[in-house]
Design a protein around this nucleic acid. Sequence first.
DNA 1: CGGTTAGTTGAGAAAGCTCAACAGATGTGG
DNA 2: CCACATCTGTTGAGCTTTCTCAACTAACCG
Lengths: 267, 267
Amino acid sequence: MYAESVCEAPSSAPSSPSPAGPGAALIPVNRQRHVSEPGCLSTRCSTCSLRAVCMPADLSSIEIRQLDTVVLTTRHVRRGEALFRAHDVFQSLYAVRTGSFKTIVMHRDGREQVIGFQIPGEPLGLDGVCSGTHSCEAIALEDSTVCIIPFAQFESFCRDSRRMQHHLYYLMSSEIVRESSLMMMLGTMTAEQRLASFLLDLAARFRARGYSGAQFNLKMSREEIGCYLGLKLETVSRMFSRFHRDGLVEPKGKQIRIVDAQALARV
Amino acid sequence: MYAESVCEAPSSAPSSPSPAGPGAALIPVNRQRHVSEPGCLSTRCSTCSLRAVCMPADLSSIEIRQLDTVVLTTRHVRRGEALFRAHDVFQSLYAVRTGSFKTIVMHRDGREQVIGFQIPGEPLGLDGVCSGTHSCEAIALEDSTVCIIPFAQFESFCRDSRRMQHHLYYLMSSEIVRESSLMMMLGTMTAEQRLASFLLDLAARFRARGYSGAQFNLKMSREEIGCYLGLKLETVSRMFSRFHRDGLVEPKGKQIRIVDAQALARV
DNA sequence: CGGTTAGTTGAGAAAGCTCAACAGATGTGG
DNA sequence: CCACATCTGTTGAGCTTTCTCAACTAACCG
């Protein structure tokens, strides 16, 4: 996890054996026995503390109960493993429960571009809806868990619930807007500005989840950051050093402390 | 228009007076009187030759009739004018009928990034769904016409028709995928490769509409192309010259002839 | 027809890349 | 628990690509 104070399976998860093999990593969740620990993620949407991030705020209790019947399973993905790969058949959307992912698109010549980093509460797999196969791949940056949202069931739920319907539109349109502003970054910004806006974006997302926006752990390498920002890892490293020298950020390897967010925004 | 052989209001449109002032450019279409000319765009979806590009292929006749009751109006946008601007309230999706558009996102400091060029049959406005206001703006590259798809009505139509519902998902997800591959381009390609893939993409889209993929008119300036590709206009111009010298493309100003598409794909 | 805009080309500057050396962190097996 | 290997990150030097600025030409418009 990025922040220290998160309660579910923290760094013990990496060493604990995955309940299912890498081939069949679907783990059914017992919906009756599992009771959410205080302040923790539940295995059901109805009691999950991330629901506010992941689902619309104004669901009725009936809708929430119905949601529990759609989102029945979770899946663990070990660090470095893929949740899905390009050309995999699209069957489900996913929501990050714990851990984090990168999504990448691959050019035929092997070049890859990281198109996003996903942290808890964020959706994965929306790219698969249009063609029935995924166009990008999602790789876990650390041992992670996702909720599985089978698309067929979710769709029929959406036909019943206008709010859910809207939420699905919302998710897809948000992804469109997110990617637009990323294109703006790639097309018009200097290396310095790209890294600054990356850090501020991450900070805002952590803050929205109740974590510190001023201090967090990057789970991705300098190379992955570069791949996301359209830069080489050396350039990313240099920019971190520059921010450090100028008193904007205190990077200790992957541990980042944002010292002067205003200045970072002005870069 | 890009291709010469398109029948509806060709280059006469620019000089013909807009039926409504620039402020209130909504033009009601009389659904009964207007009959589609042979091979031409109709003012109704049921008889529109672009429907195959714009809507799902397998609509029932009932659905098509219902579509006619949703898409009632078109709007003319003069060259350089905006169909919508950032922060405008989102009310409708649009489909380009004639002409072409660019969509741009603006940074607060005035920098702008072109995030797409839209030609007939392509959707506009999907960015507005998530927040209720548009995040980008759509500017006509030439005198153009769009079909107006009021989102509220379209949504309720989608609740009745699973095919339309799917199509809306399809449109949004396609936009996500399109933007991903654009990010790949901006993040990993050289100037030469960017221009090559831009030309090949345009060619494919024209071909899909029955126009020549080997020869077409660019309605956008070198500067706008640069803004899309994350390059300066001089660089775009130099790359055109290089392609010309190498016998890949014959550019005569805005008139482009692709001589060696294979080589272009190999760049 | 003259003024304006769009496109081309050249020369020099700058940002970011490549290659290389090195330092720290991490992990592994003895 | 240490030694070694590996991986990740930092820094420097020189190079490449693209940008900037400028001059010039072509196309377009009133």
